Amino acid sequence: MHTASEKMFATTSSSMENLAPVVAVGEQFCVPHVVDLTITGKAFRDHLTVTDTSGDVVFTVETVVSLFSHKLLLLDAAGHTLLTIKAKGITWKVYRGESKDEKDLLFKVKSKIHLININMELDVTMPINNNFNDGCDYKMKAKGLSSSPGNIYIGESNSIIAQSIRANKLFGCKIQARVNPNVDYAFIVALIVISEDYYSGS
């Protein structure tokens, strides 16, 4: 019998390939099997909860708002801050832990501006020797504001490392995510959180 997640991703999972390990946050978040996660949030998405297929909490996300900006905190199940995501305009910077130091900057995300802002496209850049180039190491794409699958690719290739299906609800949101084997699922959750921030127009 197929699980709900297997049915949900049945039409697209065949394009997910066995690729080299993808590590951005930590090797402890890379496992040799597919990871299915559910991300739920209430209205305004000020708090998100990430659970596994057993219903156990894996991560939570908190939003901290200041006068001119806001940041998102990705916490582990014990409540420790894994990542701090600082949002500014169409750019998000992701730091390790609660750090604000540039040496702890793990990756940057920037949204592409379309004349008609229907489709989402986020470019992810990783540092090389603490320097960022102008290229794109990973990309997240989704069509429209519906529950169309949002795919995360390696660079400009067609190699998919994770997928998500998003459903808006009257009093919140629900996202189903499937992460490829040996892909850092904390990294993928961070990208999905950023996509939610993008959609919320924060």
Rank of each mutant, 00 (worst) to 15 (best):
Val50Pro: 03
Ser111Ile: 07
Arg166Glu: 11
Lys141Cys: 10
Arg96Pro: 03
Phe44Cys: 11
Gln163Asn: 09
Tyr198Thr: 10
Asn158Ser: 11
Arg45Thr: 14
His33Met: 09
Thr53His: 09
Ile118Gln: 13
Phe29Tyr: 14
Lys112Asn: 10
Phe107Ile: 06
Ala10Ser: 12
Ser66Val: 11
Asp123Met: 08
Thr38His: 08
Pro149Cys: 04
Ile160Cys: 01
Asp46Thr: 14
Thr11Arg: 15
Ser147Gly: 15
Ile175Phe: 08
Val58Leu: 02
Leu72Val: 08
Val109Cys: 11
Tyr198Val: 10
Tyr138Cys: 04
Val57Pro: 05
Arg96Val: 05
Lys112Phe: 06
Glu98Met: 14
Ala142Thr: 13
Ser13Ile: 15
Lys110Thr: 15
Glu6Ser: 08
Gly41Met: 04
Leu115Ala: 14
Phe187Gly: 00
Lys112Arg: 13
Ser148Ala: 14
Thr49Pro: 03
Val124Ile: 15
Ala4Lys: 09
Gly41Lys: 01
Gly135Cys: 03
Lys169Tyr: 11
Met16Ala: 05
Val183Glu: 02
Arg166His: 15
Val109Gly: 06
Leu75Ala: 01
Val58Arg: 04
Val65Gly: 05
Phe132Pro: 04
Gly155Asn: 01
Leu83Ile: 04
Val183Ser: 01
Asn168Val: 14
Asn129Ser: 15
Ser202Met: 13
Val35Trp: 02
Ser202Ile: 12
Ser159Tyr: 10
Ile154Asn: 00
Lys100Asn: 15
Lys108Ser: 09
Lys169Leu: 15
Ala177Cys: 13
Gly144Arg: 03
Lys174Trp: 04
Leu106Ser: 08
Pro149Leu: 07
Leu191Ile: 13
Lys112Thr: 10
Phe59Ser: 00
Val183Leu: 05
Lys143His: 08
Ser54Thr: 10
Ser202Asn: 14
Ser5Tyr: 13
Met140Lys: 04
Gln28Arg: 14
Val35Lys: 06
Met126Ala: 08
Asn182Arg: 11
Gly26Gln: 00
Leu106Gln: 06
Pro21Ile: 01
Ile192Asn: 06
Ile90Gln: 10
Thr84Glu: 08
Arg166Thr: 14
Ala43Val: 12
Val22Ala: 02
Gln176Val: 09
Phe187Asn: 00
Lys169Ile: 09
Glu102Met: 13
Val61Ile: 07
Thr12Lys: 06
Glu6Asn: 07
Ser99Thr: 07
Ser14Asn: 08
Ile118Trp: 12
Pro21Glu: 06
Gly97Ile: 04
Lys86Asp: 10
Val23Met: 09
Ser200Arg: 10
Lys7Phe: 12
Lys42Ser: 09
Lys7Ser: 12
Val94Ile: 05
Gly97Val: 06
Ser202Val: 12
Thr40His: 05
His114Ala: 13
Ala20Met: 14
Lys141Leu: 03
Val193Glu: 03
Phe132Asp: 03
Ala186Met: 00
Thr84Phe: 05
Thr40Glu: 07
Lys139Cys: 09
Met126Pro: 03
